[in-house]
Design a protein around this nucleic acid. Structure first.
Lengths: 273, 273
DNA sequence: CGTTTATGTTTCGCTATGCGAGACAGAATC
DNA sequence: GATTCTGTCTCGCATAGCGAAACATAAACG
């Protein structure tokens, strides 16, 4: 029972020498690529725009988008002549979320709430998707101006505290693969990005948590702590908020350690079933 | 600029006479069908199980699942030798949610909150996906035992108050199409289901809202009101809770009318931008 | 108005692509 | 060490899906 999942990077030539991977279904990948084009900012996209972004020829885009529409994953707005995401994608996301142990979530929520209130920011759990961290749970403190990033929101792996914590806890082989991809994405910025990640490694080794001081979003600071689920999958917690509320000093000496304790506590709760 | 979206039902023969629709991309549809197999209850599925549920031969399932894994939409658990939903699906769902006007959501949340508290139940907004309604927003009152259905949760179109409200507000042609599909799904139960839906139509005509008294879930009762967004897409609100908290009388004379007012208010807010 | 430029959809012949019966290969159970 | 699960890989075949080009519609000019 060998496996064909020895790697999950996308642009790899998986076959020995010749052309492409005989096991890879292009039409499926292309269709999903279309769905990916719809980021929160861009609600409606036309065929041409989709074709431009994906590099797929227009007729193919038309066919794929038509298929996705029939299946409910895209909606077609007749007045605009453009597509938008359909309700189908939502239920997939929900199924995904509930696959993360529901009981667990109920148990740890109060603790997250407590820290969110205390820090006057928000506390979240995230998992990795490609080169982002995606929130699977997030609790806002009731501070006046709380960040408005809900479940499913994305943070950059390289510059967020959560992403750095994730990377720091990753086995070296996997981590190097990801870092390669980050580098390839922006050779220009790489030296600086790399420095930030490596500082994260040191912080994690020294204190058990990583920082981000406005490196992902200038207005936002936070700390992150990795966490390994009982089934072995890696995720990360963060606690963060607006820079003008949370001082570096407080993050470093107060919030950071508190988040580490929170994660320790969660680990214990899990191991006791 | 003719359109290939004149219909969105799935099992239709779109071509004139001969075989299938030349414009339909089977491989894409099959891949997405695999993803759909993962309902909240079933986290891990193996190739055989997936093949059984979808009717797709094992080798094809293997290929498609492998592709989805490479793309991040499935995870493969080596110890179990099974697949589970990957983080990729989450971000799609999030993009979908934020496409529903964020400002609007911020505006109406307080009103939903108020009614949720008052009714000691929960208030939600849903859109249709195939034969279900899917929550895109939900607010729980702080009553002790609140239902735990979050964003992305599904209710049956035919037996929930929200679904009936949706159907009641739908143009007849579209509605008949859906009702046909509901009938085909369970000829046996159809007479009773149909009666419930038609009662919903009458309720909507008489009072402006529909009921469900434990017809979707025996423990749960609620009322639903349809709502047409500024861009013309139809959705529905509901307000519901445990049957032992909400009496029929209260739903009918108090909560129902209050939900209708809420929706009217929302419509006004929207029309004033 | 025709003309131009922008859409998005359909045609249609070709061939790469994805299909799937069957072979194969590990695990688990006895 | 059979037997019975599992899931993956082989490989010849048929066709599904591809995409250049043609077509069709709508809007934006003068």
């Amino acid at each position: 029972m060998t496996s064909n999942h020895e790697s999950n990077d996308i642009e790899r030539f998986d076959d020995d020498l010749p052309g492409k991977d005989r096991q890879f279904v292009t039409a499926l990948a292309r269709g999903l690529e279309l769905l990916r084009c719809f980021s929160p900012g861009e609600r409606h996209l036309g065929v041409t725009e989709l074709a431009r972004r994906t590099g797929i020829p227009k007729p193919s885009v038309s066919r794929l988008a038509g298929t996705l529409t029939k299946l409910g994953y895209l909606d077609f707005s007749v007045p605009l002549g453009k597509y938008s995401l359909g309700s189908g994608v939502l239920s997939l996301g929900y199924a995904m979320l509930s696959s993360i142990d529901v009981r667990l979530r109920q148990i740890i929520k109060p603790y997250m709430q407590e820290l969110a209130e205390y820090s006057r920011g928000s506390v979240s759990i995230g998992i990795r998707d490609r080169l982002s961290m995606v929130y699977v749970e997030t609790i806002r403190g009731s501070a006046p101006i709380a960040l408005q990033r809900g479940i499913g929101a994305r943070l950059a792996l390289a510059t967020s505290s959560m992403g750095r914590a994730y990377l720091a806890a990753l086995p070296e082989a996997e981590r190097n693969l990801l870092m390669d991809q980050i580098r390839q994405r922006d050779e220009q910025a790489w030296p600086q990005i790399k420095a930030g990640i490596e500082q994260g490694f040191r912080d994690y080794a020294d204190r058990g948590f990583c920082f981000s001081f406005g490196e992902w979003d200038p207005e936002i600071v936070g700390v992150g702590v990795p966490f390994r689920d009982s089934d072995g999958s890696l995720m990360a917690f963060n606690c963060g908020g607006p820079a003008f509320i949370l001082s570096r000093e407080k993050l470093e000496n107060d919030i950071g350690p508190k988040l580490v304790s929170l994660v320790k506590l969660v680990s214990n709760v899990i191991s006791r079933h």
